[in-house]
Simulated scan of single mutants.
Amino acid sequence: MNFLLDTVQTSNMNPVCKVKYLPLEVTDNSLIGSIDKILYQNKHFYILDKSANMGVLIFNENGKFIKSLYKLGEGPEEYIAPIDFDVDATGNIYIADNARQKIIRYNANDFEKYDEMELGCYFMEFAVIDEEHIIISEIYDQGRIKDKLAVYSRKDGKIQSLLKSTLKEIDEQKVPRGSSHYLYRSGDKVYFYQRFTPEIYILNGKTISLMANILSDKYFKEVELKTLEGNPQSFMTDMKHIKDINAFYETADGYFCSLSTFPLPQFLGISKTGNNIYNLNLIKEDRLLGNLIINGVAGNYLICTSDYNEETVNAALKINGLDENTAQMFANWNEDSNPLLILFQLQH
C-alpha cells in the first residue's frame, strides 16, 4: 500500500467514537513509577516499569492487579537492566537484559521457571514472533547500528540479518529519537518503522514484508541529517520535517499512525475498506485529557495513559456527558493513585 501523505485531507467528523477510563488498582506491590511500555495480551495489561519496579506489572482487563515480575539482580534467572519486554500468546514474559546481551523467558504460571537466550550482541528492542523466532532491532557493533532488523533462531542460536540501515554516512545515535520504540505490537501482529523512510514492515516469522509506504517530501534527507548530528535542539525544534513515525497500530477496522512533527504531532487513520487515509484531529479531543502519545492497542481500542495532576482532574470533570461513576472515579483520583489508562475507539 502506498499513501501520499502531503495530499491527505482532514476528516470533518469527530474521529473518536468511544472512550473508556481504566484506573489501575493500587496495592503495596502494584505502585507504578512509570509506564515505559504497555502490551495487551490474553485479556491482560502488561506494563514495563523501568523506574520504581524495574520489572513488569500485570493487571486484568478491568484494572485489577494480578501479579508482578521483579527479578533484578545478577543471578542466573535475574536481569541487570531491562531494556524491553514482550509477551507471547500463552502469557510467557520475555525480558531483554542488554547488560548481559540476553533475553530471559519466564513461564506464565511460575516465574521461577525460566530459560535464557544468549544473543551476544547489544540491541534496542525485540518481538517474539513464534516459538522459534525472535525479531531484534537496532543491533549495535562498535558503537554503530549494524542491522536495523535481524531474526534470532532459538533452534540453532544464530542471528540472521533482515534489514540494513538506509543511512550510510550518519551515526543514528547522534540524532535524537522521536519515539521510544519502533516495533509496534497489535495482538499477534508486529509492525516496524524504518527511521527517516516512509517504510512500514510487518514481521512474519523469520522474514519481513513491506506493508505500507507513507510517502512524503517531508522526511529528512541524509545530507540534512548530517548537519544535525550532535545537535538535538535543532533537530527537535525543526518545523519542516517528519522526525519519526512514533506509532503504527492495527485495530479491527483500520490502522492508526502517529507522526512526530513540531510543534504538534500529526495523526492518520487508514481504513481497511478502500485503504483510504485521512488526518485525525485528536488535539481538540478533550476526552483524551491532553494525552497525545499513543502507547498501544487493546482489541479495537487505542491506549494512552495519564498521570495524576489537579489540572487534569479539573479538566476531566468538565467533560460533557460524563456519567456519575466516571465522575466519581476522577474525583477519587489523587497523587497516590496509579496512572490512568485511556482507551478510545476511532471512527473509520
Score class of each variant (00 low, 15 high):
residue 311 E to V: 12
residue 137 S to C: 11
residue 256 F to V: 04
residue 219 Y to Q: 04
residue 309 N to E: 04
residue 127 A to V: 09
residue 142 Q to H: 05
residue 98 N to K: 13
residue 184 Y to W: 12
residue 102 K to I: 10
residue 237 T to N: 10
residue 45 F to W: 10
residue 72 L to Y: 12
residue 190 V to T: 15
residue 133 H to N: 15
residue 336 D to I: 00
residue 165 S to L: 08
residue 184 Y to R: 08
residue 137 S to W: 02
residue 281 N to E: 15
residue 320 N to E: 15
residue 137 S to D: 03
residue 290 G to S: 09
residue 219 Y to A: 05
residue 319 I to R: 01
residue 67 K to W: 02
residue 152 Y to N: 09
residue 194 Q to H: 15
residue 90 T to I: 09
residue 36 D to T: 02
residue 281 N to W: 00
residue 102 K to P: 10
residue 3 F to S: 07
residue 87 V to N: 07
residue 86 D to Q: 06
residue 15 P to D: 04
residue 342 I to Y: 03
residue 296 G to F: 04
residue 308 Y to M: 03
residue 96 A to G: 10
residue 126 F to H: 12
residue 268 L to C: 02
residue 279 N to Q: 03
residue 211 M to C: 07
residue 99 A to Q: 12
residue 193 Y to Q: 09
residue 38 I to L: 05
residue 206 K to D: 14
residue 3 F to R: 03
residue 339 P to E: 04
residue 92 N to T: 11
residue 124 M to A: 11
residue 342 I to K: 00
residue 26 V to C: 06
residue 2 N to V: 05
residue 304 C to L: 07
residue 38 I to F: 03
residue 201 Y to E: 03
residue 144 R to D: 10
residue 202 I to K: 14
residue 24 L to P: 07
residue 112 E to M: 08
residue 308 Y to N: 08
residue 149 L to F: 07
residue 61 E to M: 05
residue 131 E to P: 01
residue 309 N to Y: 02
residue 129 I to D: 03
residue 233 Q to V: 11
residue 212 A to P: 02
residue 182 Y to H: 13
residue 251 T to I: 08
residue 242 I to F: 11
residue 48 L to H: 04
residue 33 G to A: 08
residue 306 S to K: 12
residue 73 G to C: 09
residue 229 E to N: 05
residue 133 H to M: 08
residue 59 F to I: 07
residue 88 D to W: 08
residue 303 I to Y: 02
residue 72 L to H: 10
residue 138 E to G: 00
residue 94 Y to I: 10
residue 232 P to F: 02
residue 308 Y to L: 06
residue 288 L to A: 09
residue 274 G to R: 06
residue 216 S to L: 12
residue 134 I to W: 01
residue 212 A to R: 14
residue 108 A to Q: 14
residue 243 K to S: 09
residue 264 L to Y: 04
residue 163 L to E: 12
residue 8 V to M: 13
residue 70 Y to T: 15
residue 305 T to C: 14
residue 24 L to T: 08
residue 67 K to Y: 11
residue 194 Q to N: 12
residue 99 A to M: 11
residue 90 T to M: 06
